[in-house]
Design a protein around this nucleic acid. Sequence first.
RNA 1: GGACGCUUAGCUCAGUUGGUUAGAGCACCUGCUUCACACGCAGGGGGUCGGCGGUUCGAGUCCGCCAGCGUCCA
Length: 910
Amino acid sequence: MAEISKSYEARDVEKKWYAAWQAAQAFAGKVAPDKEPYSIVMPPPNVTGVLTMGHVLNNSLQDILIRRARLEGRSALWLPGTDHAGIATQTVVERELRKQKKTRRDLGREKFLEQVWAWRHEKGGIILEQLRRLGASCDWDRAQFTMDPHYSRAVLNVFVDLYGKGHIYRGKRMVNWCPASQTALSDEEVIMKPVNGAMYRVRYELVDAPGHYIEVKTTRPETIPGDVAIAVHPADPRYASLLGKKVRRPLGPAAEIPIIADNAVDREFGTGALKITPAHDKADFEVGLRHKLPTIDVLRADGVLNEFAGPELAGLDRFAGRKLAAELLKASGALVAEEPYANNVGYSERADVPIEPRLTWQWWLRYPRVEEARTAVRDGHIKFHPERWSKVYLHWLENIQDWCISRQLWWGHRIPVWYRKGLDKENLTPADLGDPAKVHVSLDGPADSENWVQEDDVLDTWASSWLWPFATMGWPDPAAATSAGLDYFYPTTTLVTGPDIIFFWVARMIMAGLEFMRPGESLERRIPFKHVYFTGIIRDGQGRKMSKSLGNSPDPLDLIEKYGADGLRFGIVSIAPQGQDLRFQEDRIESGKNFCNKLWNACRFRQMSGEAGDNSSLAAIVNRLEAKKFDADDHAILDRLFATTREVDRCFQEFEFSAAVQAMYGFFWNDFCDWYVEVSKSKLQSPETKGNCLTIQDLVLRQTLLLLHPVIPFITEELWQQLGYATAGNFIEETRLENASQLATTSMAGGLVLDRAAVAAVEKLKEFISKARALKADHNLASRRDVRFFVTTSDAHWAVLAANLVSLSRMAGAVEISRRDAVDGAPAVVTLLGTLYLDLASTVDAGAEKVRLARELEQISKHIAGTEARLANQAFVSKAPPAVLEGARKQLADQQAKRAELERLLKSLG
RNA sequence: GGACGCUUAGCUCAGUUGGUUAGAGCACCUGCUUCACACGCAGGGGGUCGGCGGUUCGAGUCCGCCAGCGUCCA
């Protein structure tokens, strides 16, 4: 065994073990009928993506779950992959083209797609490569891409299937149109933003009564050329006399438009009169339908005003057009007023520009299995962590709208629909759409393809990723599904994702799973996952969401360089409480690195302290213990180890990762390193105690490495091997992690019965040492190692101290701790094990001592008053449970004893 | 407008079913290169738990109202 170096150097260790794991195919998800499966499908990052802190958190947690599952003896599969991310990827490649002064139309569909594929082959694997650096133990051989041929096949299959079932239809409707990407978007891809704009008050002159006007308020004067009516509420007395009359459109091509009555008009808003522009507003469109009004579209697809807007406005971008429209209205006297106005405007999530409501032909999906999807979560077949997100999910399902699944892009799954050549696609009737001779829907297209034209549109990216939990495992091809182990691994165990895609992805996956998997079988068999863990969102120091555009996200690879992958993982997980957003602070990552170094050095200390015994299994270690020789510290550290194991078990069950990490940190650093290792230093001097002490260290370190391994896999693997826990060159994950009860069982079988009272005794010893050190520090002797202490105490307490004198002296920095019947004039402190005196009688400053003791006396008196008051309260005495009451009485007695001792000390100082 | 979350030490956050004197990490102050670790050790200062009211013998914890911040939905 090579000697462990003085400090932990992450880089080489990480490289070495990742390569070793890969070479041994340690991450392969295998069908093992004798084992319980544990599976996770990775939320596929965009192929355009680079690793962000969000990915680090998300994937660290997945890796932790997967590695823990392996340690628990389950057959684990973590299936990675990437998403083709339609708009995002197309935009990236178009941007590259623009540098060469080209557009995708210059290339044509086929050539453009070749470019996208070339880009994807060159750059699309970056993020998966970065995940390897983080230590992600995915089954890389199974990596999936949503545009892989077999995956595409699954996507198109689903389209054809749902079309056949009547869930998919083509309709001309108002959609959310992104003028930048020039495609329709789903409602979920539109985000509302408050925008400071202007409200324009515009008057329309009555045709019959020149000089008389009706006024409306609008934020979009550039759409006035598209106005086809003015609407008022039918019961609004202000306008009753004007109904049926006509007004002149004040902008754009001259026209006379009617004043109509419609119940949808809000009388309170603005002037109570509304301009109706069916082409550019969803509500207006509905009004237009009801009143059979024409639709005048004044915008081109790219958001530029067209000829219907009139010669002045045509050719202007919509925002420039708005400005000019206002000026033209002002010049003509039609603009009555203009005031600042804050309203909510829908923005395209991807392109970050205001969307336009636009009437277009699109493909729509009426969601399947909506009711079952609700049941699955409401009744707990799928458990959300934290649970509160289920409310958000259920609320969305209750108000679910049909999904616009077509996109006017080239990069994506081209919709498997063919139109008969010569068909007027702009004026399709329901009869046309239902006629297989005119509209053909199938996986492979019509046999006489020369007579048909395929649909130009592709599917929304999410209409492929909603199949991720099963299309990644061979579905719907039976042979592929068998070899991927779909039947074994589905439903997956846990999904780890962000709450921001609960609608986009989580809800849709649930519906897809219910619809397509194992038809006819029970709900539990068809759901895509049993648990969904929602991570928080990582924010920067100022609470802003981390994003590429703000540039406020540190590069995780830099952090790995600086703190090691283990340090990064430990740090990020420790600050990620369940489901709460978290603020990123680099010092927490640093503390993760420090913890690794601490672990490293504790193991180094063990290695330097003596030869290793048989560490091949827990039982082997337990067999080396001589329980009869145990002292309180030995009992206490093992008791704490068991308690920590229990706590970590619980945390994993409850998905409380940061609590698990904190429990391990506290145990290892405070209980083990700060106390047990320190007392070991004297135990190791004596042959009588050395063997047990080292064996206990072996046991603690073994269990600690196993518990920590899911979080910090690299360093724990290295130490596992170095300390001789590995047998026959196996990796740490080939060992079974004993849970708390197994740990207890094995220990008992080895004759080890823990004395629980020892923990309390050690707590008292810790307090004793702490007070002794403080006493020294108070007298500027902190670094002296040659002081003498005296103790006045009972026989019972002295027995506890006497049994530990060697280690106590060492830790207190004393040459002697001895018992006296009485000590006068020395600085003293009252501990749980008696009064402790510093042998300084000759030099002590009695005045200062008295001040110090008086302050302490004042404090304890305050506490006594509080406790007495509680016990004097008749209501408390009669109603509080006996245990609480007894606790209070004991507390009072202790406090009074301490007060008496302090008073005595004060008196002795004169 | 509706729903959810948050408000605890200078900062970031823990605080299980209400029960002794509210914790951690970082930061800060003091001392220490003590034979695992200065990526460390020891000691210390620092909080009327956002506000008001209620339930209770007892409230950081439960209830109501209010304020501020954030997220989602309309």
